[in-house]
Structure formats: structure tokens, C-alpha cells
């Protein structure tokens, strides 16, 4: 058992520990190209922040990777598996390793928070009921929700609680790769900062890899290990914050050196200029 795991791991390691690689992705709607020969790599254990102007296709890319949208060309390998060539067993195994936090939570409105978290467990696993309840409560505790929230319905939750509950559902099966679509949008700055810390903490404890679409400059500066910028139908640049700040693309310049970014660390010289 262990030897096969290690060969599998070594296989992944030779690719530089890439957990998700997308190559030559082309997506078009009615002949209009949204993504054109896009390449993207995500490494194991990192938090990748994904930014781009409105309408540049951030959501399209995420949905394409999650196979919610068809693509015209390109290969996507997740955890070393190409979904298109995988058999049924591998597909299920891969699906179990993915967690998604949708922008508006996408909690099932007819189920309580606890039942929402138990949906993946119920579908994939054969767990005794008491243990399933305990695990659901554990996830609720891990994402920082009050235990009373377990039996509430999504319509009775605040925006921040919905995000946390949706994150708990995304983490129900301890996935390796988590997709977050604008996790801090609609939260107040304190709530957003707490959510950022939560994501960083969960990455450290659970060993997650996080793909985060965000517009929140604070999130980008505080928790993201790497940042990828989408523009002109492909990934303009991907790298550490410093590398991005040094890039001279006009959109990146205005995004990271605009008025709203001036007060952030790393832009000290600008702050003095103001």
C-alpha cells in the first residue's frame, strides 16, 4: 500500500509537485473567444490568488476546470489525472478530492447546515449516523461557526455565516484541492480578514491547496502565496506578489498601484507620495 503511494507521489514530484495543470485551454461562446491557449499551474500546498478585470473570464476558467463548461481545446490534469481519460473509479476518486465554495454559497436551501455538510458524506461514504453527526459538527467548529448554526437553514444565516457553512461543506471529505470563488466578497473588512486567516489556518492544518478567485486586495496581500493575473484571454503573469508588482502591464499597474492599493504594505513609497 505504502510503496504504491510513494511511487504515485514520486510521479507527482517529478512534475514539480503540480497539483493542477491546465494547458492550451480554449473556450469560446458563439465563436467569441474568452480564453485562448491559456496555461496555468497550481503547486501543492499553495494558496493561489486569481485576479482579473470583470469579464476577463475568471469564472469561466474556474468553471471550465471544474468541467461545468465545455472547452474547445486543451488538457486539464488534476492530481496527475486527466479526467477525460479517467475511468469511472478514478473520476469518483478525483471528485472526492475537490471542494468548491461558490460565490453565493450555493447551499441547498431545503437542508440545514448540518445536512448540507453531510450530503457529500452520505453520497460517497458509508458512515454510521452518530459519527456523521460528529464529523459535521467538527467541520462546523473548524470553520468557526457557532454550534447553534448546525440546525439552521441557509435562509436564516448571515452572509458571512453562509460563506463559512459553504466552506464547511466544501471541506466535508477533506479534499486536497479547494476552489474559492470570491470568498470575501460581501463581507465586512473584519469578517473578510477573519476569513482570510481561516483559509490560511486550514491550509496549514489540513494541507489544502487553494485556488482563490478574488478581488480583495487585502486577501491577495495577506494570504496568497502566488498571484495569477488573467487578461487578454490568457494568464498574463503568475508569481509572487513582488513579481506581480514589478510587472509593467498597464492593467496590473493600475490594479495594484491604484488608489485603493496605496495603503497596503509593499506600496510604502506611494503612501509617502500621497
Amino acid at each position: 500500500m505504502k510503496t504504491t503511494d510513494e511511487t504515485k507521489l514520486r510521479g507527482a514530484a517529478t512534475q514539480g509537485d503540480v497539483i493542477l495543470s491546465a494547458r492550451d485551454i480554449c473556450v469560446a461562446f458563439d465563436g467569441f473567444k474568452v480564453l485562448d491557449h491559456l496555461d496555468l499551474d497550481i503547486y501543492r500546498g499553495e494558496i493561489l490568488g486569481f485576479v482579473g478585470g470583470s469579464g476577463t473570464g475568471k469564472s469561466v476558467l474556474m468553471r471550465t476546470i471544474l468541467r461545468l463548461l465545455p472547452r474547445q481545446a486543451g488538457d486539464i490534469h488534476m492530481l496527475g489525472i486527466d479526467y477525460d481519460e479517467a475511468d469511472e473509479e478514478e473520476r469518483i476518486a478525483l471528485d472526492m478530492q475537490l471542494g468548491v465554495l461558490f460565490q453565493h454559497g450555493a447551499l441547498f436551501s431545503a437542508l440545514t447546515v448540518k445536512e448540507n455538510i453531510q450530503v457529500p458524506m452520505r453520497e460517497y461514504l458509508d458512515l454510521p449516523r452518530p459519527l456523521m453527526d460528529e464529523l459535521a459538527h467538527l467541520k462546523i467548529d473548524l470553520v468557526g461557526l457557532a454550534p447553534e448554526a448546525a440546525n439552521r437553514y441557509p435562509s436564516e444565516l448571515s452572509g458571512g455565516m453562509i460563506k463559512r457553512a459553504a466552506l464547511a461543506r466544501a471541506l466535508a471529505l477533506d479534499p486536497m484541492l479547494v476552489f474559492l470563488d470570491e470568498p470575501t466578497s460581501g463581507l465586512d473588512p473584519v469578517g473578510a480578514a477573519e476569513f482570510d486567516e481561516l483559509i490560511a489556518k486550514l491550509r496549514d492544518t489540513l494541507g489544502l491547496t487553494v485556488y482563490m478567485v478574488t478581488h480583495d486586495l487585502d486577501s491577495l496581500f495577506s494570504v496568497c502565496d502566488r498571484i495569477a493575473v488573467l487578461g487578454q484571454k490568457k494568464v498574463l503573469v503568475a508569481g509572487t506578489l513582488d513579481a506581480i508588482l514589478a510587472n509593467d502591464d498597464p492593467w496590473i499597474q493600475s490594479y495594484f498601484h491604484g488608489k485603493r492599493a496605496r495603503l497596503l504594505p509593499g506600496n510604502g513609497e506611494q503612501r509617502q507620495a500621497v
Binding site: 503511494d5 507521489l9 507527482a12 473509479e89
Partner: peptide, 23 residues
């Protein structure tokens, strides 16, 4: 059992492991 498994191999299992999980 010749070497202790690395951190990643114990916490981040290979992807197809659940399909043929041990007990």
C-alpha cells in the same frame, strides 16, 4: 516499513487511494 512515510504521504494521500482504501 523501511522508512517513515513523509508528512505529505500521510496527510495528502495519492488520489486514487480511496478507490482501493485499506482499513
Amino acid at each position: 516499513m523501511e522508512t517513515a512515510p513523509s508528512i505529505t504521504s500521510r496527510l495528502n494521500p495519492s488520489v486514487d487511494a480511496p478507490a482501493r482504501a485499506g482499513s
